[in-house]
C-alpha cells in the first residue's frame, strides 16, 4: 500500500500530465474535428509528415543498423567518440540543430555552396525536412539498436561461425533476428521523434504548406487563425503517441 503522501504526489503528477491532454479533446466537438480533417492545410501537413517521417526512419535504419552493430561488437580506437557524436542530437537544442544544418547545407553553407554549383538546393525543401528529421531522430534508433545488439549472447554468433556462417550471414541470420524487438521499438521511437520534429525543421526547411509544413509546423501556424485545425492535428499526434508507446511495450516483451 502507498502512503497518503505518495498517493497525493502520484495523483498530482498524473493530473499534470493527463489534464492538458484531455483538455485538447474537451475543446473540440467531434463534428468540428472531422470537418477539420478535410481542410487542405491539415491534409497537406498529414501527408507530408507521414511521407517525410517514413523516409527519414528508413534512412536512419539503413545507416544506423550497421553503425550500431559495429559499435556493439567491435572495439576500435575512437569508438567512444563515435558513440558520443551519435548521441549528440538528443541533447542539442533543435533550433541549434536547424541552424547548424543551414550552415552546412544552406545555399551559402559549407557544403551547400558546392551543391549550389550543380544546381542542387537543399535548404527550404522537403529534402531539408527529411535531413532535419534524420539529424534529430537518429540517436533514438541507434542507441536502442546498439543496446539490443549488445544483449544478444555472443555464444550464438560463435556457434553460427563454427557452423559455416560468414560474419555477414551471422549478422543477418542470428544477431538481427535475436535483436529484432529492440530494433523495431527503436525504429518506432525514431519515427515518433521525426513526426514531432519542429525546431530544426522550421529553421532549416522553413514553413511552406505542402512542401515543408509538417504537422507540428501546421499546428503552430493554424493556431493563430483556425484553432480547430490546430487542435485536430494535435489530437492526431496524441493518438499516434499513445499508439507508439503501446507498440514499443508490445515489441519489447522478451520472447526468448
Amino acid at each position: 500500500m502507498l502512503s497518503l503522501f505518495t498517493t497525493v504526489l502520484l495523483v498530482i503528477f498524473l493530473l499534470f500530465i493527463t489534464l492538458p491532454v484531455v483538455s485538447l479533446f474537451l475543446r473540440i466537438s467531434p463534428e468540428a474535428f472531422f470537418h477539420s480533417l478535410t481542410e487542405p492545410v491539415v491534409l497537406d501537413a498529414l501527408s507530408l509528415s507521414f511521407v517525410t517521417a517514413t523516409v527519414s526512419t528508413v534512412i536512419v535504419v539503413l545507416f544506423g543498423t550497421p553503425l550500431a552493430l559495429v559499435n556493439a561488437r567491435r572495439d576500435y580506437t575512437g569508438r567512444e567518440l563515435v558513440d558520443t557524436l551519435t548521441d549528440l542530437p538528443i541533447v542539442l537544442p533543435p533550433a541549434v540543430a536547424g541552424l547548424a544544418l543551414l550552415m552546412a547545407f544552406g545555399r551559402r553553407g559549407v557544403i551547400g555552396q558546392y551543391l549550389d554549383i550543380f544546381g542542387i538546393h537543399i535548404g527550404f525543401t522537403t529534402t531539408a525536412v527529411i535531413l532535419a528529421q534524420v539529424f534529430v531522430a537518429s540517436p533514438f534508433y541507434i542507441r536502442q539498436a546498439r543496446a539490443s545488439f549488445e544483449a544478444v549472447d555472443r555464444l550464438y554468433e560463435d556457434a553460427a561461425r563454427t557452423l559455416g556462417a560468414s560474419p555477414g550471414a551471422v549478422a543477418l541470420r542470428i544477431t538481427i533476428p535475436l535483436a529484432w524487438g529492440g530494433l523495431v521499438s527503436g525504429a518506432i521511437l525514431s519515427f515518433a521523434r521525426a513526426l514531432g520534429e519542429f525546431g530544426a525543421t522550421i529553421m532549416f526547411a522553413g514553413n511552406f504548406q505542402g512542401r515543408t509544413q509538417t504537422m507540428p509546423l501546421a499546428i503552430y501556424t493554424t493556431m493563430q487563425g483556425d484553432m480547430n485545425a490546430a487542435i485536430s492535428l494535435s489530437i492526431i499526434l496524441v493518438v499516434i503517441s499513445f499508439a507508439v508507446i503501446s507498440a514499443v511495450k508490445v515489441v519489447t516483451r522478451r520472447r526468448y
Binding site: 555464444l155 550464438y156 560463435d158 556457434a159 553460427a160 542470428i174 533476428p177 535475436l178 520472447r255 526468448y256
Partner: peptide, 10 residues
Amino acid sequence: LFQSYALFPH
C-alpha cells in the same frame, strides 16, 4: 558443441 549447446532460440 558448446557447453550450453548454444541452440539458436529463434
